[in-house]
């Protein structure tokens, strides 16, 4: 209960501020509320749908099976799988660092680990869904298509510079 209160403290304060603004006729407060209202409607009009799709994806696509095929000799297929694996995740990039460690331990190549990070940061399916909703399909598809070869290139460059014996450290949290 206390945790929820902490998480939603700004929302609660904002609701109080908006109600207060309404009663005393505080103009800036009303403008800010009407901005918020517009943003909120926009979000609620498609985000819940998106998360149903993400949940279904999560139960239907076997991530563990994918992880087995991204080793040192995996070649193009490995790159493809590692990108697919990254696309099925959710969350901010720092959430991918522990996954990078696990991939490394399971024998993924240095190149694939960094391609994973690249794909994770900007090609996750949940994110692409939201991107389409907010910025349109053209922007999303173009950005993804331009980013993809760049990530693969960054992966190759990283492997070249840090060497193929590079290891990701385990960090206890």
């Amino acid at each position: 209960m206390k945790k929820y209160l902490k998480n939603y403290i700004w929302v609660i304060l904002f609701v109080i501020f908006s109600i207060g603004s309404y009663f005393i006729g505080f103009k800036p407060g009303l403008v800010i509320y009407s901005n918020f209202n517009e943003f909120f409607l926009e979000m609620i009009s498609f985000i819940p749908f998106l998360f149903i799709i993400i949940g279904l994806f999560d139960v239907w696509v076997p991530k563990e099976a994918l992880e087995k095929h991204i080793g040192k000799e995996s070649g193009v297929k490995g790159i493809f799988l590692v990108i697919l694996l990254a696309m099925l995740q959710a969350g901010p990039l720092y959430g991918a660092f522990p996954v990078a460690y696990i991939l490394c331990k399971k024998g993924a190549s240095v190149r694939n680990i960094f391609i994973y990070l690249g794909a994770f940061s900007s090609m996750k399916l949940p994110m692409l869904g939201i991107e389409i909703g907010y910025l349109g399909i053209k922007f999303t598809v173009l950005r993804t298509l331009i980013a993809l070869p760049l990530f693969i290139l960054v992966g190759y460059m990283m492997e070249k510079i840090v060497g193929s014996n590079f290891k990701v450290e385990e960090v206890k949290t």
């Binding site: 985000i47 819940p48 998360f51 149903i52 799709i53 993400i54 949940g55 279904l56 994806f57 999560d58 139960v59 239907w60 959710a90 949940p126």
Partner: peptide
């Protein structure tokens, strides 16, 4: 069953 599990997971992520 999988569908309900997926809905639950999606709901939690949302």
């Amino acid at each position: 069953e999988k569908t309900f599990l997926g809905l639950k997971k999606g709901g939690r992520m949302l």
